[in-house]
Design a protein around this nucleic acid. Structure first.
Length: 286
DNA sequence: GCCCAGGTGAAGC
DNA sequence: GCTTCACATGGG
């Protein structure tokens, strides 16, 4: 039914933690709600006792874009059961039992994580906000009951036509040429983001790593947050610290060694486990 | 000023 | 294989 509002019934879904856990960078808290853009849809999300209430700025005929993005159909309890039964995982899950993985647009996710390297999450948000304001499509009509304007994430074609200087002006520093090169390859049809879906995990990872500025960590983020490869296990400074402290407290393990451990220890949904550990490390007091 | 941030790539052993 | 370094920029 065409409507501007829907209630997605879902249990065990921590909306705030999910939208604010460093997998997506464009969601803003407004009072008790979260406002963001999915594709060209302006959306306001609110956690309710029954699930998640969504309000849009324009009538929507097919709400699957939202179910897909939020991954509300995932049986989280079944995923959690596959986690190893050890003390660190128990603590990480207990700290935030409704944490979920989103399924984002591949280009937005890839571009965002190209911009993420050696940046704090707050700053990644600032860079992406600037990029969208300057080069993203202005979304009309202006959304109700909300402040400011909203923009779509700029397309590869749009970014491909920019200069490196215009990108650097968005404070992205040495990441600018990497984003520009990726956008140009995609816009010119030399790199196919859709093809990634048809590859297995190892092939898909290798394919993404052909892009300048995309190493194993960023490739894993994109595979996990946009393509749904649950086995992808991004190892960043936080996760490296977590694995080192929680699983190898006495001896130092190299990054390849940690990746090997992660691939075998956390099971088929290692990526979910990774998100719990990441959130746990970033939120716990110590 | 100093150190660090959801890293990567190149260069050195 | 492992270690070190440059790379922009801003926050604590």
């Amino acid at each position: 039914m065409v409507a501007m509002e829907i209630l997605l019934c879902v249990e065990n879904y921590d909306l705030a933690a999910t939208l604010d856990s460093g997998q997506a960078f464009r969601w803003q808290k407004e009072n008790d709600s979260w406002v963001g853009i999915i594709g060209k849809h302006w959306v306001r999300l609110t956690q309710t006792p029954d699930g998640i209430r969504a309000v849009t700025a324009a009538p929507v005929a097919d709400w699957n874009f939202l179910r897909e993005f939020l991954q509300t159909e995932i049986d989280l309890a079944a995923v959690l059961k596959t986690f190893p039964d050890d003390e660190p995982m128990r603590a990480a899950v207990a700290a935030c039992p409704g944490l979920r993985l989103l399924k984002q647009d591949p280009w937005e996710c890839l571009a965002s994580f190209i911009l993420s390297s050696t940046k704090q999450i707050v700053q990644i948000r600032q860079i992406i906000a600037l990029l969208c304001e300057r080069f993203g499509e202005r979304l009309a009509p202006q959304p109700p009951i909300s402040s400011g304007f909203f923009y779509a994430f700029p397309t590869p074609e749009k970014i491909a036509r920019l200069t490196e200087a215009e990108l650097r002006a968005c404070k992205m520093g040495f990441r600018a040429p990497n984003l520009l090169a990726a956008a140009r390859q995609i816009a010119e049809g030399k790199f196919d983001l859709e093809k990634i879906r048809r590859l297995d995990y190892a092939e898909a990872r290798a394919e993404l790593m052909k892009l300048r500025g995309v190493g194993g960590k960023i490739a894993d983020c994109v595979l996990l947050f946009a393509y749904g490869f649950d086995s992808a296990f991004p190892v960043d400074v936080w996760i490296e610290r977590a694995l080192q402290q929680l699983y190898f407290p006495r001896r130092r393990a190299s990054e390849p060694r940690l990746r090997l451990f992660a691939a075998t220890h956390f099971g088929p949904h290692a990526g979910y486990a990774q998100q719990y550990l990441f959130h746990y490390m970033r939120t716990k007091l110590n």
